[in-house]
Amino acid sequence: MPLAVNNATKALAELLVGGKEYVALMHLHKTFDRNELAKTLSEFTGKITQLPPVRSNVKRQYREREVYYMDILEIEGNDVLFKVGVESGTYIRKLISDMGEKLGIGAHMMELRRTKVSTLSETEGLVTLQDIDDAVYFYKNNDSRLLKKTLRSIEEALSFMPKVFVSDEAVDTVCHGSPVAVPGIVKMNSFEKNDRVFISTLKGELIALGNAVMTPTEIMHAKGGIAIKNDSVVMKPGVYPSYHRAN
């Protein structure tokens, strides 16, 4: 489960765009044909419509979600262990009962484990609450190594986003909520108009997140104007000096 601290919490929403991967254990209510099961899994791959479960926090109306892939890992009796990659907001319990219905024998979810959020694999660098507690203990005893390993950076979690790098002089104005103007940009990745963009310092620190108003080609040819409109500022003002324009 991804956690973010202090101002980094403002960047958490970005992790929802990349989808999720789970390993689920499905229990089928009667014996089944393996070919039928494989066929059903492929029928439920791609765009599907789901009615959110009764006990959910969203409005109960059919909504479209995408199942990117399903992969059977193990079959034992009536239990099927499989891996599934889905768009955010897909209910796996619902997916399983819908597949059971389609097979005509019924099915329900026994266990669920999330293995990926966005590009973060939950098999790498996962820490427990006990690990955090231990890290704080060592830190208090003058050893910060474990805490540095436990407390990673939000930049690492957002490595899948395209970036624009702004000059030191432009950082503080962005921290105050100003959009990124063309003259402040030093370098950038490729992105399309309206894409979500990571606004970075030249050191790779996250300043803010926003939407591209211009394409990189337009930015390279423009003399001025707004290039990125930011909506969530993560860096606090005052980390970089503020420069006042003479005019």
Partner: peptide, 18 residues
């Protein structure tokens, strides 16, 4: 980001919790 102090890390902190 890799050179941040613990204090600086707090404002940009991210933890993948089991």
């Amino acid at each position: 980001p890799a050179d941040r102090s613990i204090e600086q890390r707090m404002d940009f902190g991210f933890i993948l919790l089991d």
